[in-house]
Design a protein around this nucleic acid. Sequence first.
DNA 1: GCGACACCGCATGTCC
DNA 2: GGACATGCGA
DNA 3: GTCGC
Length: 329
Amino acid sequence: MTNAQVARIFAEVADILEILGENPYRVQAYRRAAQIIENLTEDIVDLARRDELEKIPGIGASIAQKVKEIVATGRLKQHEELKAKIPPGLLEMLQIPGMGPKKVLLVYKRLGIDSVQKLEEAAKAGRLRGLPGMGAKTEQNILRGIQLLRSTRGRLPLGIALPAANKIVAELKELPQVERITTAGSLRRMKETIGDIDILITSPDPKPVMDRFVSMPMVKEVLAHGTTKSSVIIDAGTQVDLRVVPPESFGAAQQYFTGSKDHNIRLRELAIKKGLKINEYGVFKADTGERLAGEHEEEMYAALDMPWIPPEMRENWGEIEAALEGRLP
DNA sequence: GCGACACCGCATGTCC
DNA sequence: GGACATGCGA
DNA sequence: GTCGC
């Protein structure tokens, strides 16, 4: 039994509970546990044997017990029981960008749709419109989401994503309307695989930049073409987002969109304790709303009394504590 | 044992 | 047409 | 479900 296998079971439990409308925090707990286990450097079986599971932050008594069950029997009774409650196709539908638990359950209950295939047929036939909260536009979005799922299954290795991103950045840099420019997301954190490419810029006149972006030769499909955000699919099948942010918020946006999500949550919690508020626009005093930082990323961390943390370390593995104590490697 | 668990913007659809 | 609600995702 | 108070 590998860490990945154990993680997968918990991830599925989370998905099913979500479709069943369970308490979102409970769902989140399973999902987070799955992620933690997957990223563990140590073998989960060894940890279970040594009874050290509960030492891992995010894993409590309940999940530790379930891990032991999986290690001992190779399966989780709760997982099997939950799987029996919903058709397997619903989990697949949940993977479609734009399809959440609510929509999945809605189309299943009202139209009996229980597979991506059936969903695609229904959307093409215009049978989805008329359902509460769904119109013609939603149908198009769903069809697009299905295409996206098929073309981007699997993440892109950094070795391929990085050159592609560099090329795009280099091309945009040539434009006089582009002031500051940076990548963000898992690419900037140098993860081994990348889900999508995020690029941020400041620009007094974004329109020509956006026009150039969506008409690059490598662009296969344009998902959105606005003045503050555009999204395209490039030939590698990867989604690339370009966002324009105000100059005074560039550092904040860079920090926010670089993540990781867990790192950001920990930062925000910390900020709240200090009477501050962090968002993608800056660091603010909670009471007066006074802006303390935002233009540069370093200031964001400085406002929280810590040194700038390199993107590669922003995974909520203790780097925030280390930074606060001044013992960043 | 009990409450909190980040914050928010965007897209879409609905209601008045 | 504009205020409001909901779902989604980051 | 997990954590901190």
